[in-house]
């Protein structure tokens, strides 16, 4: 990725706090390339053992859903209560279910 602009591009930073957990978004930073972005993320976001692994992603490569579409996007799942186990009656005396 060759940059024409003189400003460093923006990167989104994701940190895995410990083995077994997901990488979680923690913020963003500016860096000339991905290697330097990881190094900067180390200094900016993990000064107190907050992580054991870092992902950086160019901010402009992230595609996000539009907040104004929230209703049409997520409403369909609201009416499907049968997707939850609490929707079903289990007779008394039944266990391990």
């Amino acid at each position: 990725m060759t940059q024409d602009k003189k400003d460093w591009p923006l990167w989104e930073v994701f940190i895995r706090s410990k083995q077994g957990l997901n990488h979680k978004h923690v913020g963003s930073l500016r860096a000339a390339d991905s290697t330097m972005a990881v190094e900067n993320a180390r200094d900016v976001y993990t000064r107190r053992q907050e992580g054991i692994s870092i992902w950086v992603v160019p901010s402009n490569l992230i595609t996000a859903s539009d907040p104004s579409d929230e209703e049409s996007l997520f409403e369909p799942s609201a009416s499907k209560v049968y997707r939850h186990p609490t929707f079903y009656d289990v007779p008394d005396g039944i266990s391990h279910m």
Binding site: Q3, K6, A31, A32, D33
Partner: peptide
């Protein structure tokens, strides 16, 4: 840093 990044990516 920018020049170095471009060189590295090339």
């Amino acid at each position: 840093a920018m020049a170095f990044a471009n060189k590295r990516s090339a």
